[in-house]
């Protein structure tokens, strides 16, 4: 029953969110701020995680492909495909669900419990549209860039540990990451990231918007936002993969 109620309430909220803004200039004022806050501010964590995952991926792949029958470039190839297909979209989004999701839910939730949302409503403003639309659009716009950036940084991380750790030669690694490259994988990853970005920002906004009580409940809303958006990411990952790759 709770799932049905939440789904209905979420759908109604999204209906209010995707209305024409009361004042376009207020939307365009908020939008770049959200790009900076949700997108650019996520770059450091994306860089750190991508470099390390790319590096670890190279080490582990090399360990598991020491069969002389396998070509020497296979380490680069496997690292590339893992990053492109799964890590830079799905795993990165799961991590961002924690960072961005909790940020959105706690910000909107605090505005709710301190009556700031009521104040916006009393002024005759569509508070859902004013507060949530810039966040969703900004995050959806930024996510493909973050994902493609993560792919590049991950490959660079793999290169660093591979070459400087004497695991693989530069030539083999570069051959591997270029060998049998399928551009469709990048497209598939970008499509997934767009869906995930929408899920993270909208689900977090939903939990924040309907937070009630005090600080404890804002914390709960934040946790629920992260947990539920992560579950939805995994579910939609399966669905999109089945649709686009199967």
């Amino acid at each position: 029953m709770s799932i049905i109620k939440d789904t209905g309430q979420y759908a109604l909220l999204m209906y209010r969110v995707f209305a024409v803004p009361d004042r376009g200039r207020m939307f365009w004022r908020q939008f770049p701020k959200e790009l900076e806050k949700l997108g650019l501010a996520s770059l450091p964590i994306v860089i750190i995680i991508s470099v390390f995952i790319g590096a670890i991926m190279t080490i582990q792949t090399k360990l598991n492909t020491e069969n002389p029958l396998l070509p020497t470039y296979s380490t680069g190839l496997v690292t590339r495909d893992t990053l492109l297909l799964e890590f830079s979209s799905t795993i990165m989004c799961l991590i961002l669900a924690g960072k961005v999701g909790s940020n959105i839910a706690s910000e909107i939730g605090t505005m709710r419990i301190t009556e700031q949302i009521d104040a916006i409503e009393i002024m005759g403003v569509n508070s859902a549209n004013y507060l949530i639309l810039p966040k969703i659009t900004a995050f959806v716009v930024m996510m493909p860039f973050l994902v493609i950036f993560s792919m590049a940084i991950g490959l660079f991380g793999g290169y660093l540990v591979g070459v400087f750790g004497d695991i693989i030669t530069t030539a083999d690694y570069l051959l591997g990451i270029q060998y049998a490259f399928i551009p469709y994988y990048v497209f598939y990853s970008v499509v997934k990231s767009l869906v995930f970005a929408f899920l993270i920002s909208s689900v977090a906004s939903y939990y924040g918007y309907y937070a009630y009580g005090g600080a404890l409940n804002v914390g709960k809303a934040s946790t629920n936002a992260v947990v539920n958006s992560s579950i939805l990411i995994l579910f939609f990952n399966l669905l999109i993969t089945n649709l686009m790759l199967n």
Binding site: M111, E115, Q116, D118, A119
Partner: peptide, 8 residues
């Protein structure tokens, strides 16, 4: 509002 509800 009771708590002023100013935008932080």
């Amino acid at each position: 509002f009771q708590g002023s509800a100013l935008f932080d």
